[in-house]
Amino acid sequence: MNYGPLIFLGVFFTVAASWLGVVLGPHLQFGNDGPATTEDTGITYPYARPGQAHQGAEVYRANGCFYCHTRQVRSKEYGSDLERHWGKRRTVARDFLWDQPLMLGTLRLGPDLANIGARETNTHALLLRLYNPRSVMPNSTMPRYPYLFEKRPIKPGQEASPDAVFVDQSSSDRNIEIVPKPEAYQLVAYLQSQKAEAVILEVLPPLPPGGATNVVSPGGTNAAIATPATNAPATNAPSAK
């Protein structure tokens, strides 16, 4: 008997089945999902990332930050993410609409970064953390990124740059300052754009008494937003009104 064609077809169809189920099906279902506008505030979510943060995503990718940091907050059934104040709500598919590449991360050797922009608003502190993490957290295992910074001598009589994260003036003849390169600023801008906190339909926070947020889709119909982009129970939709 000749099994070659049988094996070929068998493999083809099993792989095609999982491709259909895991990739193509979900793509047909919500691959064209768009941003949503909150009616009360007029804010469209997810926010477009500013140009510098957009460049910072490339720095984040090139240096593989996502091998140790996740950018996903799970609901309380799956872990203590919310108790750790890594986010006010769980992250959902819509939060990542503009992420290219996605870089969700699957290992937490460092803390989650889905909302680092909301937690840490001080640019200088983030820069310092990139230059020498142990100066901020003593037993951190995060690598130093000195190559994102420039080491410059300060000429006698000259002031240190206001941008410097570190100035060494210990010896009188040769002073040194550490100044961030553009890449460092871009990466920090990217980190500060990490705010997956907006109130959206998929995960509603516990309703404050009397207050509710009305969400409409770009098409203007409330029905369109009910496409199950996540596993939020459909019964939540009417309660949003």
Partner: peptide, 19 residues
């Protein structure tokens, strides 16, 4: 071949993926 090729999604357990 059939079950295994469907199986990877558990790596995003609790993630921002439709349940």
């Amino acid at each position: 071949a059939l079950f295994g090729s469907f199986g990877g999604m558990y790596r995003y357990l609790g993630g921002p993926i439709p349940a």
